[in-house]
């Protein structure tokens, strides 16, 4: 097909538009990165824009080697890995019976799941519940309450439903029982959607700030996001109002704050591009039925 002048115009516009949006996302990040590797005097006098001034890695090194940071970092990694593995397992297994519409009462069970998507008990009751379960200050509190994300469950379920029924029937004729069918046939076939959901879960666990903020008071169980939020908020004027001069003197300089942001963002940033291809593929596959 021949491209008309109009097509060219549209393309140019689209590229410009997308590049502009891309820059809008990228520049603030670059600015934070530059602050993390610039010298403090340059940051204070506003000389650091997109490029670092007086390049140095001491600030980053100071952040990364601080025991509080590395401790929080390892905790977050642990919670993310364990949480993602368990979440995927439980979500995939739960979705399977839910995809069998012929099971008696299954639509009622489905309604129960969807109900939790729409309504929740609220913060205080949740907190009380967690305390009754002895989950306060327990790292499991970050994993167990959100073990199965209903939205993710629905995506996997609809993917299962898109698999041909004949596959299961033939497996059954060959003598496979339900568990064999699920683990040897259905799950391997569902890898694209599993990978996508795994990424959703991993990003969710990694970025979880609210959970630790509410349920964790123990100083040794602070996850990375909680630590990060606290460090960044230190300079916020609304919190600065209640600070004593001693607190003001102990405040981290801007460089340290930026370096903390960079050191906590980069890990998940590095993982993203490698998993992104699954991301798009998986979501599409899950949504197209037929």
């Amino acid at each position: 097909m021949k491209r008309t002048a109009n097509d060219w115009l549209l393309d140019t516009f689209a590229y410009f538009f997308l590049i502009a949006i891309g820059l809008m996302m990228l520049l603030p990040l670059l600015n934070v990165f530059s602050k993390a590797v610039s010298e403090e005097w340059a940051i204070v006098s506003g000389k650091v824009g997109i490029f670092p001034v007086g390049f140095q890695l001491d600030t980053l090194r100071e952040v990364v080697t601080s025991s509080t940071f590395s401790h929080a970092f390892l905790l977050s990694v642990g919670v993310t890995i364990v949480g993602t593995a368990l979440s995927i397992l439980f979500t995939a297994v739960t979705a399977y019976p839910l995809s069998k519409r012929f099971l008696p009462g299954i639509s009622f069970v489905m309604v129960l799941f969807v109900f939790t998507m729409l309504f929740s008990g609220g913060l205080i009751p949740n907190y009380m519940l967690m305390r009754q379960l002895h989950l306060i200050n327990n790292l499991w509190v970050l994993v167990l309450p959100g073990l199965i994300g209903v939205f993710n469950l629905l995506v996997i379920k609809s993917y299962y439903e898109s698999l041909p029924e004949a596959l299961e029937e033939s497996a059954r004729i060959d003598g496979a029982r339900t568990y064999t069918i699920l683990f040897r046939i259905i799950l391997p076939l569902s890898m694209p959607v599993i990978a996508t959901i795994a990424l959703f879960y991993a990003v969710g666990y990694w970025n979880d700030y609210f959970g630790p903020m509410i349920y964790i008071n123990d100083t040794t169980k602070q996850t990375l996001q909680l630590y990060l939020q606290s460090v960044v908020m230190e300079a916020n004027t609304s919190t600065a109002l209640t600070k004593s001069v001693e607190d003001m003197m102990n405040m981290s300089p801007e460089g340290i704050r930026s370096a903390t942001v960079i050191a906590s963002t980069v890990p998940i940033l590095v993982v993203y591009p490698f998993l992104q291809k699954y991301f798009i593929k998986g979501v599409l596959i899950g949504s197209v039925k037929g």
Binding site: N137, M213, N217, T219, E234
Partner: peptide
């Protein structure tokens, strides 16, 4: 010792 978060303490 336990501690409150910095934000929304």
């Amino acid at each position: 010792y336990d501690m409150l978060p910095q934000d929304k303490a």
